[in-house]
C-alpha cells in the first residue's frame, strides 16, 4: 500500500515537472498572441459593430452561439439540482435559516436590497459599454435575494415566477437567434441597427440578449439558492 502511494506520487511528480517545463515556455505576456483572430475582433467591434466593450462583442456577437450554450448549461444545472433535491410540497424540509436576523440586519438588508438589484440591472444593461454583462449582472441580482433569504426566516420567492422569468428569457434569446436567420441568413446574426459608439442603444442585438441573460441568470441562481436553503438535512 505504502509502495503504491510512493509510486503514484513520484509518477505525478514526473508528469508535473514535464508539464511545468512545457508550460513555462509559453511566454505569457511577451511573444504571446502574435497571430490569429484577435486583431480582427479588436478592429471590428468598435468600428463596425459600434461596441465599446470588445469582450462583450466577442461573447454575444462573434461567439453568441457559445453563449446560448452556456446559458443552457446554467439552465440544465438548475434543472438538475431541482431534480436531485426535489421534494413534493408535503415533504418540503424546514429552512436551514431558522430565525430572522436582528433588527439591524433586517432593516439594513431591506435598505440594501433595492440598491443591489439596481446595480445588477445597471451592470447587465451596460454590458456593451462597460465591463460586466448579463452573467455578472444576474449574479449580483441573485446575491440581493440571497441577502434577503438570509436576513428573514420567512422570506419566500415564488418558484412559478422564477420559472416563468427563466423560460421567457431563454425563449427571447433563442427567438432572437431565429429572427437573425430570417433577416440576415444565419442564426444569431445581428439584424438591428448598430447605433453609434458609447450610446446606450447601440451594438445591435447585444443589449437585448444581455438583458435576457441577466434576467435568466438572476432567476436561475435565486432558484438554486432557494432550493438549497430549503433542503432538509
Amino acid at each position: 500500500m505504502k509502495m503504491k502511494k510512493i509510486l503514484v506520487i513520484s509518477l505525478l511528480a514526473v508528469f508535473g515537472v514535464y508539464l511545468a517545463e512545457v508550460l513555462f515556455k509559453l511566454d505569457f505576456g511577451r511573444q504571446f498572441f502574435q497571430q490569429g483572430v484577435k486583431d480582427f475582433y479588436l478592429i471590428t467591434s468598435p468600428i463596425k459593430l459600434q461596441v465599446a466593450n470588445t469582450v462583450t462583442a466577442i461573447v454575444v456577437n462573434f461567439r453568441g452561439f457559445d453563449t446560448l450554450g452556456e446559458v443552457t448549461v446554467l439552465f440544465l444545472a438548475t434543472t438538475a439540482m431541482g431534480s436531485i433535491l426535489y421534494k413534493g410540497r408535503h415533504q418540503l424540509g424546514e429552512r436551514t435559516v431558522l430565525f430572522s436576523g436582528s433588527r439591524i440586519v433586517t432593516t439594513g438588508s431591506r435598505l440594501l436590497f433595492p440598491a443591489i438589484i439596481l446595480l445588477g440591472a445597471y451592470v447587465f444593461i451596460h454590458g456593451h459599454l462597460t465591463p460586466g454583462g448579463g452573467f455578472q449582472g444576474g449574479v449580483i441580482i441573485a446575491t440581493g435575494f440571497l441577502l434577503m433569504l438570509m436576513a428573514y426566516a420567512d422570506y419566500t420567492v415564488s418558484h412559478v415566477v422564477l420559472s416563468v422569468v427563466e423560460s421567457l428569457a431563454g425563449i427571447t434569446f433563442a427567438t432572437i437567434g431565429l429572427l437573425g436567420m430570417l433577416h440576415g441568413g444565419s442564426f444569431l446574426q445581428d439584424f438591428l441597427p448598430n447605433g453609434s459608439l458609447n450610446d446606450l442603444l447601440s451594438g445591435g442585438i447585444i443589449p437585448i440578449i444581455y438583458i435576457a441573460v441577466g434576467f435568466k441568470v438572476g432567476a436561475e441562481l435565486t432558484g438554486l439558492i432557494y432550493t438549497a436553503l430549503n433542503e432538509k438535512d
Binding site: T72, G170, I171
Partner: peptide, 10 residues
C-alpha cells in the same frame, strides 16, 4: 430543441 427546452416549463 433549446427553444423547446425553455418552453416546456411554461
Amino acid at each position: 430543441p433549446l427553444l423547446a427546452a425553455f418552453l416546456i416549463p411554461l
